[in-house]
Write a protein that binds this DNA or RNA. Sequence first.
DNA 1: CTGCATCCTTCACGATACTG
DNA 2: CAGTATCGTGAAGGATGCAG
Lengths: 108, 108
Amino acid sequence: MSSIHITARCPIRTTLELVGGKWKLLILFQLFNGPLRLTGLKKSIPDISEKMLIQELKTLADSELVSRKNFGEVPPRVEYTLTEKGKAAMPLIEAMRDFALRYERKME
Amino acid sequence: MSSIHITARCPIRTTLELVGGKWKLLILFQLFNGPLRLTGLKKSIPDISEKMLIQELKTLADSELVSRKNFGEVPPRVEYTLTEKGKAAMPLIEAMRDFALRYERKME
DNA sequence: CTGCATCCTTCACGATACTG
DNA sequence: CAGTATCGTGAAGGATGCAG
């Protein structure tokens, strides 16, 4: 564990680049319950703007954490699914939840 | 686990507010090895600016993840230590490391 | 429905100089 | 050594309108 060194490219920074920011982890978390379309995601994360949602989905797809499937129908139908790499974020999200809960518990 | 709902105050967002951003987790991680002074931290995170370091330490202290001890000496001597709440971030950092390593492994 | 383009605001972050 | 003050920049995020 002490084998992590703070350099230009350490695991912590890699993860921050992949899922850092305000939205990516929330999006990934929503997709754990199964594939969702843009509208479904928008509903489950009410306060994200459409622009940010599409933008983040694109970067998540670029880093292969999410896959985008276009059904080529009319009206358009596009489905977003977690990839294997994306599913690997589950323990991370659990750790975040545990941290927050423990933090709030100790606030008393 | 599916008990996390994306609301204004969900655990994920709480954690993002506490340790989100570019530097806080890196600082916490450095303090796992023991207390450090400002200069020591600066050396272990070479590319952080002095301003950001002090600023982040202050918010970490405000949220009680880090404690600041001023020895009141001359020249100044101030030591930063992880609190119990701060130590609770360890599993989070480990999860981030695991995620990054697994991600890179699957890149081959 | 999905997505792009634009314009705009905010703020995280950074560079530098200065103080006790 | 530790910290403050100031100024500046770029990126992140947001609002809105338009298009296939």
